[in-house]
Design a protein around this nucleic acid. Sequence first.
DNA 1: GTACATTTGTTCGTATGTATA
DNA 2: GTATACATACGAACAAATGTA
Lengths: 80, 80
Amino acid sequence: VREHIEAWSDVPKYVQLAAILRAQIERGELSPGMPLPSAPHLMATYEVSRGTVRKALEILRNEGLIETFRQIGSRVKPDA
Amino acid sequence: VREHIEAWSDVPKYVQLAAILRAQIERGELSPGMPLPSAPHLMATYEVSRGTVRKALEILRNEGLIETFRQIGSRVKPDA
DNA sequence: GTACATTTGTTCGTATGTATA
DNA sequence: GTATACATACGAACAAATGTA
């Protein structure tokens, strides 16, 4: 809500959201094993759509930083 | 049960379902204090998904027409 | 007191349509 | 024409709470 992401031509919202979450992981605000906020929660927090959240999480998954499970959600990989 | 809701570009299903239920309340077919049909029942009756039912009920909740309780279901507000 | 079924709450996966840059 | 972004709508599965047998 307070962290509204601005639509910006050069950097897509989903890339920005991925960067925000990646920074939180690297700063330890989200520690290994910790669950990430759910997609609906991220949607509300950053005022973006479901698709944008999914794309952001997909980036972090591809980077090996998080893992996602059905009906469970995403968490920081234990070895991240 | 004959009240199949058609997908129509201008009016989303969940808005139509909310309108149907709102009309029933205003006509007194659902009187104050009366329980609404459960979500599974509404799904079967109108042939829509759970998410659509939930969105429709959310609209009526925000309008103050109904209230919802876990394992109890929704009912028309006593003062509606 | 316990087991079971029902109902809502919540989550992720997926697909489609629309609008815009 | 492609990429971005949103809204709608479906399905599936789990948790939590309540009522009932």
